[in-house]
Nucleic acid binder design. Structure first.
Length: 562
DNA sequence: GCCGGATGCGCC
DNA sequence: AAAGGGCGCATCCGGC
């Protein structure tokens, strides 16, 4: 039995609240209270708060020590519902939703603002930030109806609820931050890069490597300028199209080794060096701003600090507080397990129904024991590989796991034809950018020109480069996106499991979580993660034999986890 | 001087 | 061995 209330901050700093009945309709008069946190704190019986924007409300609650069990984020639901209805790109604010409901002019969404180092997320106030509570409730009621119209209403309700839960998790992680030792980080930088020189130039080791590169070429070369490097190789009689690592590393030339080393260390210097430390680490915590559902597939992103791209070597600086531990857990072979669950392929479900190494099992069945071959084939099928060994082995995969391969093939075909493609729970891939619609391309979807007349149907081998790109995108979308669906449920379940513990979720990266907890809680946390993964599997995908095992490590330092 | 695109690489 | 999917971000470069 959930006790649902709605809440809307008012312009004068007060807050309006109203109880909702079991049907989600207002079940009592709107009440004005003077204080947001007080209004929530004084109603501990409320299990779900309905509000416009979690990012607006929840950080303010957390700042006063108030957590909520569940919420419903109206603007996030609006985004998901619009996508599901094939109306990607329409303004997603509550004010816009109200205007569509009432037939008024629809206000455009405000532009997104980039994060600044250390900014405590005093989010912009979009149009309609103070939509009166009755208006907000009108939008909410209409959204309830729209859920009913979805392809799978139950799944759609689960999706909006899960992403709202994800937003609570994100806000809490933004507040807690990832334990970070600036001291260890500085020692690491000194060890890797050498001394910093006054004036902000390259540190010693980079300067030395640049000199080695120049010496190898017999002239001054700036290794950080790709054009300069390509020219230098050309003068040495070696044609390279770019200076990407995979292209350079096969070249036989004395400059290659110092060049690759330079690029590796240069990366660390500019992206995770001293100025990064200065900008992003405060009071022993790294605080990237996590954004749930920041991508079209539902994967999260972080704003600022490159929070989801912490290089392996730098993880040495992620250190638990004294007496505390980091529980680092990542899902084993998440993508093929998700593919098994969504395709219901009997063979792949059987393989995914065991905790043991899935790629090895696939390989035993279809690739005579070569695990790497099996892994490449599976990932190639999911990513839409167009050449190489993966393609060659796709045929073997197709024979053994026909429904699984057919599932992603069908998604690719739908994508090429510009049809809607959905994750298991109903997150919807934007259609291709076509005439008059540029929103899909803004969202990163491969677009391009309209297909020529008479060729819009899907014909193997005759699709344009653009439509093939859209096919690959859609193929990957159903797997990556359904994995993101599952991950949201995992986070929601884990958050509940940790509710009464000192343990804190401090990091989430697609298929990996880090929980910071007192040492004596660590084993319970590991169990909570395994239980939550299983629960998430059942809730997301229903009754399947597919299992979602985790590799978990209890460590004091992130770098020791693998 | 601002801005968008290209390049390249970190993570999954 | 070859180059499929999703991102963020720093830097350079050319256009205005």
């Amino acid at each position: 039995m959930t006790d649902r209330w709605a809440l809307a901050p008012a312009e004068d700093g007060g807050v309006d609240v109203a109880p909702l009945g079991p049907d989600g309709l207002p079940a009592g008069p709107v009440r004005r209270e003077s204080d947001l946190a007080g209004a929530v704190r004084s109603r501990p019986e409320v299990t779900r708060w309905v509000w416009r924007s979690t990012a607006e409300v929840y950080p303010r609650l957390l700042a006063t020590g108030v957590r909520v069990e569940r919420c419903y984020d109206i603007e996030d639901a609006e985004t998901l519902l619009l996508g599901h209805e094939g109306r990607y790109g329409e303004p997603r604010s509550a004010a816009a939703a109200l205007a569509r409901l009432r037939g008024g002019p629809v206000p455009p969404d405000p532009p997104q603002r980039a994060a600044e180092p250390g900014a405590q997320s005093p989010l912009f106030e979009p149009a309609g930030a103070h939509l009166p509570l009755p208006d907000l409730l009108a939008v909410y009621t209409e959204q309830q109806r729209r859920h009913q119209e979805a392809a799978h209403p139950d799944r759609m309700r689960l999706l909006t609820a899960a992403e709202s839960a994800g937003m609570l998790v994100a806000a809490e992680m933004n507040r807690s931050g990832l334990p970070w030792s600036a001291e260890v980080h500085r020692a690491l930088l000194h060890e890797l890069l050498g001394e910093r020189y006054a004036g902000g130039g390259e540190p010693r080791r980079l300067a030395e490597l640049a000199d080695e590169v120049s010496a190898a070429f017999g002239r001054r070369v700036r290794p950080d300028l790709p054009a300069d490097v390509v020219r230098a190789f050309a003068q040495a009689g070696i044609k390279v199209k770019s200076t990407r690592r995979w292209e350079i590393e096969s070249v036989d030339h004395p400059a290659v080794a110092p060049l690759l080393e330079y690029k590796k260390l240069y990366r660390i210097w500019v992206a995770h060096g001293w100025s990064w430390l200065q900008d992003w680490v405060r009071d022993g915590r790294f605080r990237p701003e996590f954004l749930a559902g920041g991508t079209v597939t539902g994967r999260w992103v972080t704003n600022g600090g490159g929070g989801l791209q912490i290089p392996k070597v730098i993880r040495r600086a992620v250190v638990a507080d004294p007496g505390w531990r980091l529980v680092v857990a990542d899902a084993d072979q998440m993508e093929p397990r998700v593919l098994a669950a969504i395709s219901r392929d009997a063979g792949l479900m059987e393989v995914a129904g065991r905790d043991s190494d899935l790629y090895q099992s696939v390989s035993d069945r279809a690739f005579s024991g070569d695990r790497e071959e099996a892994k490449i084939a599976v990932l190639g099928a999911v990513y839409g590989q167009t050449s190489g060994d993966g393609l060659k082995n796709l045929a073997a995969l197709r024979r053994r796991f026909p429904k699984a391969v057919a599932y992603v093939d069908e998604a690719a075909r739908a994508g090429e034809e510009g049809r809607l493609v959905r994750t298991w729970l109903g997150r919807t891939c934007p259609p291709a950018a076509g005439s008059g619609e540029d929103t899909a391309e803004e969202a990163g979807i491969p677009g391009g020109e309209e297909e020529p007349e008479g060729r819009s149907g899907w014909v193997p081998g005759y699709a344009s480069t653009d439509s093939r790109a859209r096919g690959r995108f859609a193929r990957n979308f159903v797997v990556q996106g359904s994995a993101a669906d599952w991950a949201l449920l995992l986070l929601a379940a884990l958050r509940r499991a940790l509710w009464d513990m000192a343990a804190e979720l401090v990091f989430f990266q697609h298929d990996e979580v880090i929980v910071h907890c007192p040492a004596q809680e660590a084993e319970a946390v590991v169990q909570a993660i395994r239980d939550s993964a299983a629960l998430a599997g059942r809730l997301t995908f229903g009754d399947t034999p597919v299992r979602f095992p985790f590799t978990a490590a209890v460590v004091e330092c992130y770098a020791d986890a693998k």
